[in-house]
């Protein structure tokens, strides 16, 4: 027999279980609800008397049954506790966020712990489920990830041109170089330099120079394909990586870009001015030691264009056969 002291202790223990700010419920082998604490009552709007003895999937049709069984069955069979996080499955029960006014999500993110309960015969015939409200942690983590992504984008971008900055572009070409080397596929590299940029800066001022850079960058963006990577490589120097593209195919794009810039009139100090670019092209060559050699090959082709009178596309001469 339980004496009165033990009875009192059990009473306040039950009281704590009833009032603890985490969901507690017990399911039997048929997934019928056997216990249901205050947290579950308040968040679901269903009292213990209303749900006791009922199958949980009937009471809560929104529960992803297949997923939940995959987690709960091993607890019965292996007699082993199982944990799930909101990162796997944001919520088991569709409960409202505790902060319906100030919160930024509508529902409660939940971590779940499923533990076996052994019968007196030593068989696991019930499971207990604890539902933790982790909305705050989850939302913070999601916001942090979003902020990091934004920062990463900012760190990779050149603010004037809006293209990839040099540092990020260099990691892109390094990756492309390794990809070509590994899978023996083709790619071309195009380097672009604005002709007589120093004179634009000297004669009209740096703000005019900046606006020329912006206009040329816009043209580059409009010419390149989805899969190409463009970047601002130096002051007035740009580069585009063209994956899976032969140098002859790349020549079409380079010529188109050269013509577009030549034909566009740039407004400089209220006057129409023309700007031209010199371009150099180099196809990936398996003999390149590293991506620097590839850049150098395209660069020397670009200088060849300058030497030949500018406003011109040149293919690296080792490859122009």
């Amino acid at each position: 027999m339980i004496n009165s002291e033990e009875f009192t202790a059990m009473h306040w223990l039950m009281d704590i279980v009833q009032n603890v700010d985490a969901g507690l419920l017990v399911l039997n082998r048929e997934y019928e609800i056997e216990a249901w604490n205050g947290f579950m009552e308040n968040h679901s709007g269903l009292m213990a008397e209303q749900v006791r003895g009922k199958n949980i999937f009937n009471v809560f049709p929104e529960i992803d049954k297949k997923w939940f069984l995959q987690k709960a069955e091993p607890v019965f069979i292996l007699n082993n506790r199982a944990f799930t996080t909101w990162e796997q499955h944001t919520k088991l029960f569709h409960f409202k966020n505790y902060h319906p006014i100030t919160g930024i999500v509508d529902y409660m993110y939940q971590n779940i712990t499923i533990s076996p309960i052994k019968s007196v015969r030593g068989v696991t015939d019930k499971i207990s489920i604890i539902v933790y409200d982790v909305t705050t942690v989850a939302v913070n983590k999601l916001l942090l990830a979003e902020a990091n992504q934004k920062l990463e984008r900012l760190a990779q971008r050149d603010s004037l041109s809006g293209l990839n900055n040099r540092r990020h572009w260099e990691t892109l070409i390094e990756n492309e170089f390794l990809r070509c080397k590994r899978s023996k596929i083709n790619a071309s590299l195009l380097i672009i330099d604005i002709d007589d940029f120093k004179q634009i800066n000297d004669n009209f001022g740096h703000s005019c120079g900046d606006s020329v850079i912006r206009d040329v960058s816009n043209q580059i963006r409009s010419c390149q394909r989805e899969t190409d990577y463009s970047g601002r490589y130096g002051g007035e120097e740009f580069a585009i990586i063209l994956p899976d593209t032969s140098v002859q195919q790349a020549l079409n794009l380079a010529e188109r870009l050269r013509k577009q810039i030549e034909e566009q009139s740039f407004m400089i100090n209220g006057e129409q001015q023309s700007v031209t670019i010199s371009l150099g092209l180099a196809e990936f060559n398996p003999e390149f030691k590293d991506h620097i050699e590839w850049i150098n090959a395209a660069d020397s082709a670009m200088y060849e264009s300058k030497k030949q009178g500018k406003n011109k596309v040149t293919i690296n001469k080792q490859q122009n056969s």
């Binding site: 995959q70 987690k71 091993p74 292996l78 506790r81 944990f83 796997q88």
Partner: peptide, 8 residues
């Protein structure tokens, strides 16, 4: 998979 295997 990661979580299920870890649980066990």
């Amino acid at each position: 998979i990661l979580m299920d295997t870890a649980n066990i």
